[in-house]
């Protein structure tokens, strides 16, 4: 008898608790009308950034393409008249990309970055393949003030070895001989 009363009471409590939810606010976020907040470090659409001088940051080292777990990045290195390396083409197939952010972590020059934007639906799958002109933005993205050629020992036309920031002139090893 005690058990039966307890069981009945439990059912009534359940009913009441559910009924109370009539007055609680729904958890639903109605997405297209109500945009969710995306943090600045949200991993969304991939962009290629430029250094403070407006030059491409990408040096076509291929590390992003290597680290990409789904092999969605393809690029080809070429060199300009100043001796700077840059990608001849840079192609990301977003229908494969899983937005893991490994390319961003692998990138030695902050060139490739993920942005808080995920609204990139297309009716045609071919349109998911982004070329360099689609990827390249005019700004510096999340990391300001960094320019690879200003701090690296690579010599380009108007900057020889040893002239970069925080860099000592190269040592003539032969002169150290006794």
């Amino acid at each position: 008898m005690d058990m039966i009363l307890k069981a009945i009471w439990s059912q009534l409590v359940t009913l009441f608790e559910v009924l109370r939810h009539t007055f609680t606010k729904a958890d639903t976020v109605e997405y297209p009308e109500e945009m969710p907040y995306l943090a600045p470090r949200y991993r969304g659409r991939i962009v290629l950034t430029r250094d403070p001088d407006g030059e491409e940051r990408c040096v076509a080292c291929n590390l992003c393409a290597v680290v990409c777990p789904v092999d969605c990045i393809a690029l080809q290195k070429t060199e300009d008249d100043h001796g700077r390396w840059y990608p001849e083409f840079f192609r990301i197939n977003f229908s494969r990309c899983i937005m893991c952010g490994m390319c961003e972590e692998a990138c030695p020059t902050y060139a490739i970055q993920l942005t808080p934007d995920f609204e990139m639906c297309e009716y045609d799958r071919q349109n998911m393949v982004y070329e360099k002109e689609h990827l390249l933005i005019s700004g510096q993205g999340k990391y300001h003030g960094y320019s690879f050629y200003n701090v690296s020992g690579k010599s380009i036309e108007d900057k020889d070895k040893g002239e970069a920031r925080n860099e000592a002139p190269p040592v003539d090893v032969r002169s150290l001989l006794p």
Binding site: L19, H21, A26, T28
Partner: peptide, 8 residues
């Protein structure tokens, strides 16, 4: 049902 399950 939506209202009672905190949905819309």
């Amino acid at each position: 049902l939506g209202i009672w399950q905190d949905r819309l």
